Lab assay of single mutants.
Amino acid sequence: MTEYKLVVVGAGGVGKSALTIQLIQNHFVDEYDPTIEDSYRKQVVIDGETCLLDILDTAGQEEYSAMRDQYMRTGEGFLCVFAINNTKSFEDIHHYREQIKRVKDSEDVPMVLVGNKCDLPSRTVDTKQAQDLARSYGIPFIETSAKTRQGVDDAFYTLVREIRKHKEKMSKDGKKKKKKSKTKCVIM
């Protein structure tokens, strides 16, 4: 069974824990209790493949930012979460993405942009803004509501699919490099 290491990042209060708990335990946590770091595991079937999701729910508070490099190193894919009623959390996505790329030393890291709290009427981040940002990053965008469960499975499952595509691409690139290195030079 394939294991996928997913990391949920975003500013404090955007609903990272609520999304994760909704996926794992099928219930909505409405009281806000700032996370330092929590880890969850769940076995699911995605596109006919049974897999184990190892999900790291991270601290959004700035005082825990020193811990970010460590979990970013171990993560295979990242859910970059903002709240649709919090423009600052949307603007912060850029910083999370840049930090992930720096730590992973790669421009090509599996990510999904997630606009959470889409059940709320007080939207300050337009869907088109988020779609445009995701398009500019070359990553999928999904709106979710941890409260109603809308888009929750889709967000995590899409990230797994992005990781699969990335692994497939990397193995193809690896095979191309191996083929090239088999060419021999004969000096007579």
Rank of each mutant, 00 (worst) to 15 (best):
E63F: 03
E63M: 03
Y64A: 14
Y64V: 09
Y64P: 12
S65T: 07
S65G: 11
A66N: 10
A66I: 08
A66F: 07
A66R: 05
R68C: 12
R68L: 08
R68S: 15
D69R: 03
D69M: 02
D69P: 05
D69W: 02
Q70E: 12
Q70P: 12
Q70F: 05
Y71T: 13
Y71E: 14
M72S: 06
M72Q: 06
M72D: 10
M72L: 10
M72F: 10
R73N: 12
T74R: 06
G75A: 15
G75T: 12
E76L: 10
G77T: 02
G77R: 00
G77V: 12
F78W: 03
F78I: 08
F78C: 03
L79D: 00
L79A: 03
L79Q: 01
C80R: 00
C80I: 14
V81F: 13
A83W: 01
A83H: 09
I84G: 15
I84E: 15
N86K: 04
E91P: 03
H95G: 06
H95A: 14
R97G: 06
R97I: 15
R97Y: 15
E98W: 01
E98A: 04
V103G: 04
V103R: 05
V103N: 06
V103E: 11
S106V: 11
S106K: 06
S106M: 13
S106Q: 11
S106H: 06
E107S: 10
D108T: 06
D108V: 05
D108K: 04
P110E: 01
M111S: 01
M111C: 05
M111F: 11
V112I: 10
V112S: 00
V112P: 00
L113V: 07
L113H: 01
L113A: 04
V114R: 00
V114P: 00
V114C: 04
G115A: 11
G115N: 04
G115M: 12
N116I: 14
N116T: 15
N116L: 15
N116A: 15
N116E: 08
K117V: 15
K117S: 13
C118S: 10
C118D: 09
C118A: 12
D119Q: 04
D119G: 08
L120P: 09
L120C: 13
P121A: 10
S122E: 12
S122N: 13
S122F: 06
S122V: 06
S122W: 07
R123D: 15
R123E: 14
R123I: 09
T124G: 12
T124S: 11
V125A: 11
V125E: 12
V125D: 11
D126Q: 06
